[in-house]
């Protein structure tokens, strides 16, 4: 049996984040071919209740101490190092998110472990994993292997399926302690997103409307879709010109540049001036009645049809799914 895979669970403000389940899913898939056990490590203060959701792991290591509320990257990496040392973990999975960035590298630097960043895929051949890393903003993929059995892997958020990391059962929990000097980085407070009109440059999901929306009344369709996706509505210039949305929601050359994880373009033709503002979106899905609309040339997915037919169905299904 191979060395255990240690998954560093990520949580913020009392809940586990999506990427935790993605990592557990990836670990499970790898474990299937290597036979390694999967361990989850949960570090924080008062986080014990979260352990119950980590059932996709074979066991959960819990480091729960009052001084670990919103722990620094350094404390978490120290905890991971000690936990790995204790269980003899081989691979350690950390999240490549804003919350966790830095933890993996600290761990690798301190423990002199190899590290693979931006991992989007894990393949297994002869019982050895090959990690596919996305480099240069997705322009090139590199395949990397580790010389030994130990190392740190930073997983690209959104690259693995979270479904595979959820389980109904709970895993046994083992409490661990942490030997750590006083923290050098101290948490002070959360800063809530500014209220007032939404800042579309900070959204993960944007539903963009163009002239194909036809009337201000139809804007509600987009609003609703954005709501179920926890995103915001933005628009092309003609929609802004109509005064249906404020100027701060304009995407494009003479408006904002955005790079959300998901950009849904409803009735937008894809003029160069619009592209300029949204081309860095990670996933673009376009709805347009015109099969030749330029927006389809740069999107990953396209739906050729009337948005008035397709959007309500999508919203309904999404709603049904989340409830």
């Amino acid at each position: 049996m191979a060395n255990p895979i240690l998954v560093l669970a990520e949580h913020l403000r009392g809940s586990l984040t999506e990427v935790t389940f993605e990592m557990l899913g990836a670990a499970r898939a790898l474990a299937q071919s290597t036979g390694a056990p999967v361990q989850a490590l949960l570090v924080g203060s008062g986080v014990e209740p979260l352990a119950a959701q980590l059932g996709a792991a074979d066991s959960v290591l819990l480091v729960d101490r009052p001084d670990l509320a919103n722990p620094s990257s350094e404390q978490v990496s120290l905890a991971a190092e000690q936990a790995a040392g204790k269980t003899g973990a081989g691979l350690i999975f950390v999240a490549g998110t804003n919350v966790s960035t830095g933890i993996g590298t600290l761990l690798a630097a301190r423990a002199k472990l190899p590290l693979v960043n931006f991992c989007r895929e894990i393949k297994v051949a002869d019982g050895r994993p090959t990690f596919v890393s996305q480099l240069f903003g997705g322009k090139v993929f590199a395949e990397v292997r580790m010389a030994g059995d130990r190392g740190v892997v930073s997983l690209y958020p959104g690259a693995f399926r979270a479904e595979a990391g959820r389980a109904d059962k709970a895993a046994p929990v083992e409490r661990c302690d942490l030997q750590a000097p006083p923290a050098k980085v101290r948490f002070r407070r959360f800063v809530e997103p500014e209220t007032g009109d939404v800042d579309i440059t900070r959204q993960d999901v944007l539903v963009a409307v163009g002239r194909g929306i036809q009337s201000q009344d139809n804007l509600a369709l987009a609003e609703e879709l954005a709501q179920v996706l926890k995103g915001a509505v933005c628009a092309s210039r003609p929609v802004i010109d109509q005064g249906w949305l404020p100027l701060s929601r304009q995407v494009g050359k003479s408006g904002m540049s955005v790079k959300p994880r998901l950009y849904i373009a409803l009735g937008i033709s894809g003029a160069p001036e619009h592209w300029e503002g949204m081309q860095s979106s990670r996933l673009i899905i376009a709805f347009n009645t015109d099969p030749k609309a330029p927006i389809f040339d740069g999107s990953q997915y396209g739906v050729c049809g009337d948005l008035l037919d397709y959007v309500p169905a999508l919203t309904e299904k999404l709603k049904a799914r989340s409830s």
Binding site: K139, F141, A142, E143, I284, Y301
Partner: peptide, 21 residues
């Protein structure tokens, strides 16, 4: 450090046109 072995590098398949649903 000797820990990593870089294998093949490749470009992702060209995005080109959207996959139509």
């Amino acid at each position: 450090p000797a820990g990593l072995e870089l294998g093949r590098m490749a470009k992702p398949e060209a995005a080109g046109h959207a996959q139509m649903l």
